[in-house]
Design a protein around this nucleic acid. Structure first.
Length: 611
RNA sequence: GCCCCUGUAGCUCAGUGGAUAGAGCGUUGGCCUCCGGAGCCAAAGACGGCAGUUCGAAUCUGCCCAGGGGUACCA
């Protein structure tokens, strides 16, 4: 907001220090940690330490830092745009003229509207891969964390100025998928439940049942064992037939796969996620085999199939490492079928070559970090330059209070069930807290609030932390939650509606409705804090995008909502004692509402007018 | 064994070299003649341990302790 002024002061400081024979340190302006007055400060400790060391002085560094700060304070006098200059605790603090500062911030928010905070185009194309559930399994709460994390990351990158491509990569083939095909064909041929979600979830039930039949049991009788082994042989045969392109198996596979994909697409619709590029594991199966051939020919991979083994890459050995780090990776089964890793080799190549991306981010559970290290290293050994532009964004997995989720055992919490429960609870809350809300509008509001609570529960935890999913906590609507943020937006909207006597703000241009105002009155601490937060938003966007951390934006949004709620209680707007105050505060409310809406949009949380 | 992650208040989490370590939940006590109480105000309560680097460490380094994950034909 005051970059130009601060830059100019920086050069004055640098000149002063140079004249003293002090090496100019890097300047790092930071907000002065004091409420009620807005300023930026700079630490003189580094300069003092450099001077003391260089000149061999005996002055304690904190003392020298304070002396420098005082000298600079005298030197600067009363710079334009600033209220006052202060030397404190070895810091030089500059306090802005609040009237000018508030005006600049609020006007730029109102002028730029939904674009406030958008970064300049960076000329880099980034692909974010997320939403990779397996087909034939159903979508659980762990997939939800993945989807919301990936989507918000994509939104942040896009808003920060990167050209962004969203990619989904459903696991539509693999042993798990074949397992479902096997049991369906054997016991349930021709059956098909009604309803998109019911049908998808039914496949998960089949998978659980099949796993029970195929897993060795304790105290197995010889008959049970023989039967299990027969089933296992049938499953392997099913995979072989799929691999060989057997028309019957392929048709069965396509049909059931479609059930899962329809379920997935409906969930993505609920989450407002729009995928640009769909990759399927099955589509990279053949290209992956080609790569294996190449790797063998180049001597990077070793083909042990003649001895009944698989095709492997001894990565550590190829890199000349003594300690085991990347280990040995199997890239083709002994029966010639591909593995997850094989397919990721082909996929990486396709992303760069077909879609021309400059950087590729994989949003995948942290348990797969060795897998990705192996993929990227093998690509490197193969001579694939862009391997260094591949980044695995690992995140902590979601477990349940009773332990890890397990699709095999059917111990999962399905996203759709949690979503339905969330909507139902919000409807109850509306009936209790806002009975005036017309019945016909409640469903839409309940969906927005329920999803807001779920999204925020996932996003307000840093990437590398595991989450134990607790329904009561995730569906709490009070405190550090999504609905708290949404409520701040609702309140701001309500004030503006009332100010202009409108039923809704939709379809109206606030900028043209709002009367002009100045901020040359004594602003309250609440107003200063709000203005301060508004000014930080563009930097928060950049930080969150650069660090790949939705949490940074989630925390910011909460701080802004919190500041607004406090302001709301302490500072009258419509009832302000003077017309000039009323006009200024209306602009501040409108600007806050705008930035809240922008932040919520980045978090994939809807900002309703009522709730 | 080797690699990775985590340890901050009773619980769940922020804070990744700077000023007095912040929230939420829970507990206790206040606040609707006032723009929506899904809210506000206040109280009590914390950096796993030991060294090191630094003017300055929750933050960086090393070791230790405690949890979790990964580790050749699952994904």
């Amino acid at each position: 907001m005051f970059e130009k002024e601060l830059k100019q002061i920086e050069s004055q400081i640098a000149a002063f220090l140079a004249a003293q024979g002090i090496e100019a340190p890097e300047f790092k302006w930071q907000p002065v940690p004091f409420h009620g007055e807005w300023g930026m400060g700079i630490s003189l400790f580094a300069a003092a330490a450099a001077e003391v060391r260089r000149k061999g002085l005996s002055t304690p560094i904190p003392q020298r830092a304070q002396e420098l700060a005082l000298a600079l304070k005298d030197l600067l006098g009363h710079p334009a745009g600033f209220q006052r200059v202060e030397a404190l605790n070895g810091y030089l603090n500059l306090y802005f003229s609040t009237a000018e500062y508030a005006r600049r911030v609020i006007e730029s928010v109102l002028e730029q509207g939904e674009h406030f905070g958008r970064g300049a185009p960076k000329g880099e194309r980034v692909m974010v891969e997320y939403a990779q559930p397996n087909t034939h399994h159903s979508f659980h709460i762990g997939h939800y964390r993945n989807a919301i994390l990936g989507e918000v990351l994509a939104r942040l990158l896009e808003f920060a100025g990167f050209e962004t491509l969203r990619a989904s990569y459903p696991g539509d083939i693999g042993l798990g998928v074949i397992t479902v095909l096997w049991i369906y064909d054997k016991f349930y041929r021709g059956q098909e439940p009604e309803g998109i979600h019911e049908r998808g979830q039914w496949l998960l039930k089949l998978y659980v049942e099949a796993t029970a039949l195929l897993e060795p049991k304790e105290n197995e009788t010889p008959e049970e064992r023989a039967r299990r082994e027969a089933y296992e042989a049938e499953r392997r045969e099913m995979y072989r037939r799929w691999d060989a392109g057997d028309p019957y198996v392929r048709e069965l596979w396509l049909k059931t796969r479609q059930w899962s994909l329809e379920e997935l697409r409906d969930i993505l619709r609920i989450l407002d996620i729009h995928i640009d590029v769909w990759f399927y594991e099955s589509e990279v199966d053949e290209p992956a085999k080609q790569i294996v051939q190449e790797l063998i020919a180049l001597g990077i991979a070793e083909d042990e199939r003649p001895q009944g083994g698989p095709v492997i890459v001894r990565i550590d050995e190829k890199l000349g490492l003594k300690k085991e780090k990347y280990r040995t990776a199997v890239i083709l089964r002994s029966d010639g079928t591909t593995l997850y890793l094989t397919k990721d080799l082909a996929l990486a190549k396709e992303k760069f070559e077909k879609y021309g991306v400059d950087r590729s981010i994989y949003v995948v559970d942290v348990r797969q970090s060795l897998h990705f290290q192996q993929v990227f290293k093998i690509l490197e050994l193969w001579g694939f330059k862009q391997a260094e532009k591949c980044y695995h964004l690992g995140y902590g997995f979601v477990s349940l209070p009773e332990g890890a989720m397990s699709a095999r055992r059917g111990r999962v919490v399905l996203f759709k069930d949690v979503y339905d429960e969330a909507v139902s609870r919000v409807l109850d809350t509306i009936a209790e807290k806002n009975p005036q809300l017309p019945i016909e509008r409640r469903q839409e509001v309940a969906e927005a609030i329920g999803l807001g609570a779920l999204a925020y529960a996932m996003l307000s935890v840093d990437n590398n932390k595991d989450i134990v999913f607790n329904m009561e906590e995730a569906l709490s609507f009070e405190g550090h939650t999504g609905p708290y943020l949404q409520n701040a937006h609702v309140r701001a909207t309500s004030i503006l509606r009332k100010a202009f006597n409108l039923e809704t703000l939709q379809g109206h241009s606030l900028v043209s409705l709002l009367p002009a105002a100045t901020f040359d009155y004594s602003l309250t601490a609440h107003e200063i804090e709000l203005v301060n937060l508004l000014s930080r938003f563009p930097n928060v966007v950049q930080q969150a995008a650069q660090e790949y951390r939705p949490l940074v934006m989630a925390n910011y949004a909460w701080e802004l909502a919190n500041a607004f709620h406090s302001f709301y209680h302490a500072v009258p707007v419509l009832q302000a004692e003077e017309e000039s105050l009323r006009r200024a505060r209306l602009r501040l409310v409108a600007a806050t509402r705008q930035v809240l809406a922008n932040a919520l949009r980045l978090l994939d949380i809807r900002a309703p007018e009522v709730m």
